[in-house]
């Protein structure tokens, strides 16, 4: 029983991070209809920005280890990632707006390779130890072990998801985002600046990825430039699983994947874990081709 509860908690914290990254994939897909392969590397950048700011804070003599400092680092790193995301979109994707999505896809792969390999040059290749940016302690509830970081991860993730939901559903710019996602041409006809909305979407998605990166690094404090590959791929699966383009779908997909992974990990099937994640994805897509919460687009002839 304790073991099961333990796995549930592990699954929750893993799933929350997947959900944050998956949201970025799904938002970009919603407005631009292409898979932003560089997203997982923005995630990596988030962790490194936090690493370097935390070190700088330490050097400048700020009091470290408080919640305030942690939140400041998190926000800084989200902002940095948002800027990077907007710049990437502006330089690499916007010139290709009218080209086929495959062309943009290859460019995205190029950007991803650039960030990974550039990261190896700039940050070095060896794993770095990520400092405790939030006060860290281990809670033991009758055999049930919870790291306080896991709770912080969960809290931050829920806060960010609610904020995102509010922005998309209840603000002007969120409404504009939904309009662009629904039909970009029609949106521009009613006076929405689609380029601005797309930039904004990229910024938000990248900020979420950055936050995901920081949270991931808190949970697994060993960061290196290729750290985005594996969670990026999982989050991508999560986004498609939930129905790419659907925000609640991405959150649901992320959580589901987190649970499945931790569920499989403790068993003798653990080495088949990635294969099982994909098998579930394939299974769901075969029965619900648009994912769990995705809407089926009616084909117009």
């Amino acid at each position: 029983m304790t073991e099961l509860l333990q796995q549930v908690i592990n699954g929750l914290s893993m799933g929350a991070i997947y959900a944050l990254i998956a949201l970025g994939y799904t938002m970009v897909y919603g407005v631009l209809r292409f898979i932003n392969f560089a997203h997982s590397d923005v995630f990596m950048l988030g962790a490194f920005v936090a690493y370097y700011t935390a070190r700088a804070f330490g050097r400048w003599g700020f009091v470290m280890g408080g919640y305030l400092g942690g939140i400041a680092i998190l926000l800084l790193s989200m902002t940095a990632c948002a800027v990077v995301g907007i710049v990437i979109e502006r330089l690499a994707y916007r010139p290709l707006r009218r080209r086929s999505t495959l062309t943009v896809l290859i460019t995205a792969i190029g950007v991803s390779l650039l960030l990974q390999n550039g990261g190896q040059l700039v940050f070095g290749v060896n794993p770095k130890a990520f400092p405790d940016i939030f006060p860290s302690s281990t809670l033991n509830l009758g055999g049930l072990v919870i790291n306080s970081n896991q709770l912080v991860v969960l809290g931050v993730a829920i806060a960010l998801l609610s904020a995102l939901h509010w922005i998309v559903q209840h603000t002007r710019i969120g409404t504009a985002m939904r309009a662009v996602s629904f039909n970009a041409t029609a949106a521009s006809l009613v006076g929405i600046d689609t380029n601005r909305i797309i930039s904004f979407t990229f910024g938000m998605g990248s900020a979420l990825a950055g936050a995901g990166g920081v949270l991931y690094a808190m949970n697994y404090p060993s960061i290196e430039p290729l750290m985005g590959n594996s969670p990026g791929l999982k989050a991508f699966i999560a986004a498609v699983l939930g129905g790419i383009g659907s925000l609640p779908g991405a959150a649901l997909g992320g959580m589901l994947l987190g649970f499945v992974e931790t569920g499989v990990s403790g068993t003798r099937w653990s080495t088949f874990r990635d294969a099982i994640a994909f098998a579930i994805l394939i299974g769901i897509l075969l029965f619900r081709p648009a994912g769990l919460l995705g809407r089926n687009r009616v084909e117009k002839v």
Partner: peptide, 24 residues
Amino acid sequence: PSLRLKGDYLAIVTLGFGEIIKVI
């Protein structure tokens, strides 16, 4: 099974099968 899917969905499913083959 997968060719009923289109576009990006087909891409991700084939990607998935590729990874499954690797894991096997």
